[in-house]
């Protein structure tokens, strides 16, 4: 609905028209899930649910966000709506932090509780009776040596380069933000493409690292709790970088289309927040997964 100014002169809060996007998005996601279910349980539904569900969901997401961008550019959002989006994004990122918290917690527990107990600490050494003679150490693929002999990825090779890449991308996106606020649009767009490039190179390095780990180091998801925590933490982070890079690309294209103003560009800032969040998670990963 439109937002004509009420008597007190303030802009009325924007309440959108009825929308079928949310329902359709759910239908797409559930179709996708049925595809995954059929793969995991050998039901032979084939790849069709993946293409159908995934494609449909992607289409809906595109149209939904496109609608929001158009509403925003159409001047329908008051300061109060802007604040809604800010708060919503902040709380969403908080929920993401808690999601990673579960995996960091698992890493902590495996290293500081589960393995030492298997090695004879705690509760009168009872856990050690299962695996007599096992001595706790880290990294570990457990008393049964699951997945066989493996080596770990050195922190100071690709991971260190990746750290530099992500930290640099944090700097370039800040430059882009300042350029946008100073209304230097070309500089902003160039800094944004630089940020996207850092993201892409990071993902390439991660892919190289994974291939190296699987083929040269025999470090896989099957390598006990070390392999589990290593790949799940870096893997989920990688997915978030992929999403973040996609978001950065969309924002950059919107900049090239003339979207955003120096004093009003929450779409840009929200993505920047997300990118910084991904950055901070990586610092945690670098310290607790690679270095320590």
């Amino acid at each position: 609905m439109s937002s004509p100014a009420p008597a007190n002169g303030q802009q009325r809060y924007f309440v959108p028209d009825p929308s079928a996007w949310p329902f359709m998005l759910t239908a797409g996601l559930v179709t996708l899930i049925i595809g995954v279910w059929s793969s995991l349980e050998d039901k032979n539904l084939g790849p069709l649910p993946y293409y159908l569900g995934g494609g449909f969901a992607a289409f809906v997401i595109f149209r939904w966000f496109r609608g929001i961008a158009l509403e925003s550019e159409g001047g329908k959002y008051s300061k109060q709506v802007d604040m809604t989006y800010r708060m919503g994004m902040a709380w969403f990122i908080f929920s993401e932090v808690m999601f990673f918290g579960a995996f960091f917690g698992a890493l902590y527990y495996a290293r500081e509780v589960a393995l030492p107990w298997l090695g004879g600490e705690g509760a009168k050494g009872v856990a050690n009776l299962l695996w007599t003679g096992f001595e706790a150490s880290w990294p570990s693929n457990g008393p049964a040596n699951l997945g066989g002999y493996y080596e770990t990825v050195s922190a100071w090779g690709l991971p260190f380069i990746n750290t530099c890449l992500l930290l640099s991308s944090g700097v370039t996106i800040t430059f882009a933000h300042h350029a946008l606020k100073d209304n230097k649009r070309l500089a902003c767009i160039l800094w944004m493409w630089a940020t996207v490039a850092f993201g892409v190179v990071f993902l390439y390095c991660q892919a190289v690292e994974y291939i190296h780990a699987y083929h040269a180091l025999n470090l896989t998801l099957h390598s006990g709790v070390y392999g589990s925590t290593f790949f799940m933490l870096t893997g989920f982070h990688g997915m978030h970088v992929t999403l973040g890079t996609l978001m950065l690309t969309v924002i950059t294209i919107r900049l090239m289309l003339g979207h955003f103003k120096p004093d009003s560009h929450f779409g840009f800032e929200g993505v920047a927040w997300y990118w910084h969040f991904v950055d901070v998670v990586w610092i945690g990963l670098f310290v607790f997964v690679y270095v320590l």
């Binding site: 995991l40 856990a127 693929n141 457990g142 008393p143 049964a144 699951l146 006990g224 392999g227």
Partner: peptide
């Protein structure tokens, strides 16, 4: 499905970890 061992003692994990989380 993917061979991780968060909750498998033989791989250095622990079923109790699940209960904590």
């Amino acid at each position: 499905y993917f061979g991780t061992s968060f909750f498998t003692a033989s791989g250095g994990g622990d079923p109790v970890l699940f209960q904590h989380i």
